[in-house]
Simulated assay, not measured.
Amino acid sequence: MANGSRQAAWEFFGAELKRRREDAGLSQSALGVRVFVSGGYIGQFEQAIRKPQLDVAQRIDEVLQTDGFFERLWRKLIKDQPFTEYFAHAAELERLATKICEFEPALIPGLLQTPEYARGLFTASNPFATDEYIEDLLRARMDRAALLKDAARPVYWVIVHETALLIPVGSSITMAAQLAYLGAMMRERKVLLQVIPFAAGAHPRMGKMMKLMEFEDAPPTIYTEGVHSSSLLDEPTVVKRVQASYDLLRAVALSPEASLALIDSAAEDYRQCASTT
């Protein structure tokens, strides 16, 4: 399903939600109370600005007595996404965010990956997949990354551990190009990136990636990821705790200038390795 067709389908979802809500005699706030979201969220669902999570769609069906209509439509739309089901909603929110703060403990974040680096990751994690499947994954990844080329791109603040610079993905040439790309994005001020060096020692928050997204007219949201699973949360106390964790990681990271020097040095090491092989 093309992006335009998918958006039109979400607009249909929203129009049906509004129609059936009004038929039930409920305001946006009244429905929101019953499905445990704000009335403003219901309004954004109806305008196709934000997409509900599955459990919200299921509760809407229960409250409006729509016999699973919104759950079935949700599953169809998510299935047609170019991303895995557990990441699809987060990918939609990335496009709406005004600010993204991200921590990755071992890999270069997806929004900053070069095609060769991303292809190396996809091939390693899908060893029996066809070339066509790998290229579909790569195309979706690069479509996401185009977000940072947009004039209206979000403020993007990234923290990576030094591990991400040293774990080889693909060849030495691939890694040299990937790190050079990071450096270029930093110099162009499209990303503020800091590296946590090995010298910083262990930190209890280093084990899991986290992405904090802020929006113009909606509460901030936290995305974390496990093995073929994820959590997308906007409960204020949870967001506050994750923000505090991110701040602690930022406190032990190198400055952007020192981080850039470390990235440049690692890129040069890969270039020298490539030249001797």
Rank of each mutant, 00 (worst) to 15 (best):
19 R>W: 06
19 R>V: 07
20 R>P: 05
21 R>D: 04
21 R>N: 05
21 R>G: 04
26 L>T: 02
26 L>K: 01
27 S>I: 00
28 Q>L: 09
29 S>M: 04
31 L>A: 02
33 V>M: 08
35 V>C: 06
38 S>N: 07
40 G>H: 11
41 Y>I: 14
43 G>T: 11
43 G>V: 09
44 Q>R: 15
45 F>D: 11
45 F>Q: 11
45 F>I: 10
46 E>G: 10
47 Q>P: 14
47 Q>I: 09
51 K>Y: 15
54 L>V: 10
55 D>V: 13
55 D>T: 13
55 D>P: 09
58 Q>G: 11
59 R>D: 14
62 E>I: 10
64 L>H: 11
66 T>P: 08
66 T>I: 00
69 F>W: 15
69 F>Q: 15
70 F>V: 04
71 E>V: 12
72 R>V: 09
73 L>Y: 10
75 R>E: 14
76 K>P: 03
76 K>S: 13
78 I>L: 06
78 I>T: 09
80 D>A: 11
81 Q>M: 10
82 P>K: 00
86 Y>S: 08
86 Y>F: 15
88 A>P: 02
88 A>Q: 04
89 H>I: 14
90 A>L: 13
91 A>S: 12
94 E>I: 05
96 L>C: 08
97 A>Q: 12
97 A>N: 12
97 A>Y: 09
99 K>L: 14
99 K>Q: 15
100 I>P: 05
101 C>M: 13
102 E>I: 07
102 E>L: 10
106 A>D: 02
107 L>P: 01
107 L>F: 04
108 I>C: 01
110 G>Y: 03
111 L>A: 01
111 L>E: 02
111 L>P: 02
112 L>R: 00
112 L>N: 00
113 Q>A: 00
116 E>F: 01
118 A>Y: 03
123 T>F: 02
126 N>V: 03
128 F>N: 13
130 T>V: 04
132 E>T: 11
132 E>N: 08
135 E>K: 04
135 E>N: 07
